[in-house]
Design a protein around this nucleic acid. Sequence first.
DNA 1: GATGAATGAGTATTCATTCAT
DNA 2: TATGAATGAATACTCATTCAT
Lengths: 205, 205, 205, 205
Amino acid sequence: MQKRAMETQTKILGTAMRLFSEHGLKGTTVDRIAAEAGVNKQRIYAYFGSKEKLFVAALTRVFQEAAPVSQSMLDEARADPEHLTEILLRGFHNFHAVNPQFWRLLAWANLEDARLLESLRDVRTGENGEIRRLFDRARAGGRLADISFGNYLFTLLAVSWFLRSNALTLRYTMGRNTVDENSAGTLFRELDRIFARNAAEGFSR
Amino acid sequence: MQKRAMETQTKILGTAMRLFSEHGLKGTTVDRIAAEAGVNKQRIYAYFGSKEKLFVAALTRVFQEAAPVSQSMLDEARADPEHLTEILLRGFHNFHAVNPQFWRLLAWANLEDARLLESLRDVRTGENGEIRRLFDRARAGGRLADISFGNYLFTLLAVSWFLRSNALTLRYTMGRNTVDENSAGTLFRELDRIFARNAAEGFSR
Amino acid sequence: MQKRAMETQTKILGTAMRLFSEHGLKGTTVDRIAAEAGVNKQRIYAYFGSKEKLFVAALTRVFQEAAPVSQSMLDEARADPEHLTEILLRGFHNFHAVNPQFWRLLAWANLEDARLLESLRDVRTGENGEIRRLFDRARAGGRLADISFGNYLFTLLAVSWFLRSNALTLRYTMGRNTVDENSAGTLFRELDRIFARNAAEGFSR
Amino acid sequence: MQKRAMETQTKILGTAMRLFSEHGLKGTTVDRIAAEAGVNKQRIYAYFGSKEKLFVAALTRVFQEAAPVSQSMLDEARADPEHLTEILLRGFHNFHAVNPQFWRLLAWANLEDARLLESLRDVRTGENGEIRRLFDRARAGGRLADISFGNYLFTLLAVSWFLRSNALTLRYTMGRNTVDENSAGTLFRELDRIFARNAAEGFSR
DNA sequence: GATGAATGAGTATTCATTCAT
DNA sequence: TATGAATGAATACTCATTCAT
């Protein structure tokens, strides 16, 4: 593949990631992608086959690039194992702030057509392994609640996701007596205490 | 309004709720709504003004009808105050199972255009008041973790929502070593224990 | 016919005259006529048969009501026979100012569908007879150019019509070095002199 | 631009000129233009943006192409300066016969929406300069009535326009005792004599 | 590899007219 | 007589995709 072709593909994919994450599959037109990428529309078909395939390519790319589990987060957790829960929550939360395309593309795919997700089967999204090791060590050290790793991770993902993706929904429906984005820190610390102290008690018994 | 008109409007709104929740605003065509409702397309404009307004009407209707906080759930919680967390989680989870349109319509509005949510400002989604009373009593009785009501409710909503709305996402991304729908019960019980024991421990100290 | 029916018809016809003269046959919707007349749409069909027939009715009505040849104009011409041309020109010009619907409805009919004009066959638009008498007297008295009555009247009508109906066109095309509305008076006086002096000369020979 | 594109645009514009001049902006459908031009409807939007813009393009084109002031008319006037008025009238009259789209498009724009005329601001419709020179020479030579050039030209334009655009109207309303198209020659000669003789007389005084 | 040109099915919305109460 | 409900054919405009140079 020539260099020019590479550049064209890069431009297309970048624009697609942005537009698809903003407006979804149906809400994004091929014409607009081409225009904003500064590329001839036909190239999209030459390189990606169809609009839907381009969406899948964009989604896959976002998945490969974005790593919810960052090295710095793991470092922090290792340095301060007493507050694993808070650190993970804050880490996921930051990740969503930095990679808004991640959850939006996922959400679009989830709603519009589950088949769009199939390509992600083989993509490993960062490694949960290291988190699991930290989790196991905390459990062994009596610093964590009596919960399976899967359910623990799930709960943290749920909270951080919901915080980002439903801020508006909650504001409009739950009458803002629930958490808003600024008070996320409080939420994280409270949950940290709950998951942590619990374990202590579990041991004391 | 004549009886026939009422019927027509009902047919339109019902079909709109179903199709919009499945395919979103963009993904649903007015033609299809009319066809599946067995109604002349023009009636949609006569009664609802535009496709977007019909979406808002559908969303509002779903909100008025669906009550995440059901009476039976409250009864159960009153009868078994020891397991408030589990009961609420199961209640929300069931609610989403029975009202799939609820979270999907919300999710679509959230992604497609936040303005679509504005109409919900004035709609009260069931009463949180009763839950708050149960929560306060449990706290006072030392049966609940040291967490604010807002953050408590938020966490439960996040977990139950995430379970429904991202089942597929998780299956494809987290490598199915996280929770699937069948193991929701385990998750609920584990969280219940964590939120509950914690309080007990808090008191024991 | 009942009194209420009469009122309804009057409201419809009045609104139709106004809207059709503004936007023409195609540019006016039955819905709008009904709405602005404060009348049920169906009444239009009950009383006038169709949109087109309503247009014809409006046109006919305007024709019956509006009289390009007014009594006061004739009086003035009788009192000041020396300036017949100017008086007639000013009279027609004023008529168009006071009855804008007249020339616009005619122009629409003329452009949109000549058949719309057929109904006017039998409607007498004021009397040309009196003007002819004034014309003949002026000719006989040597105060008017050597021109047939038909051509004389035609020229005056052309000038007054063109002044009203093409003001905009002229402004945009002829570079405003032609006449604008304010200088109409000059035009009239000049033409008056030409048509008059000419006759004098004709006699002098 | 490719040759094929040029052809397509030409076909569209030609058909648009014809249909718009016949039925106006509202009365012409984009579908029909496409069909009669033998062109894909979308091309109209690709090349002209919208139906309204196509109308403006058609109007502008007609203006650029059509020259009410022809060379042959000027030649004739130079060769026979005694009958300037008649020659101009006949020239304008012929022009309208040969270019029926000219006055109809103007009339439609005038009635339907004055904004449609704005594009004509910068288009020069042939040159009045040469006519003005002929007029001045005739005046100086004592062969023309005492009238300003603007009002002179306006009157001739009014008469020739009215003759074409309101033939039907007049037939139906003025009871056919006015001029019909065939007797236009008489009208022209009469007016010629009036405008001409007058000057002679002016001098004789 | 790149680009402009073309296509046909679709997409929200409107309109004149008729029906039923 | 009046009114709301209903209808089907338009109507301007868009979109994903393919073709030709």
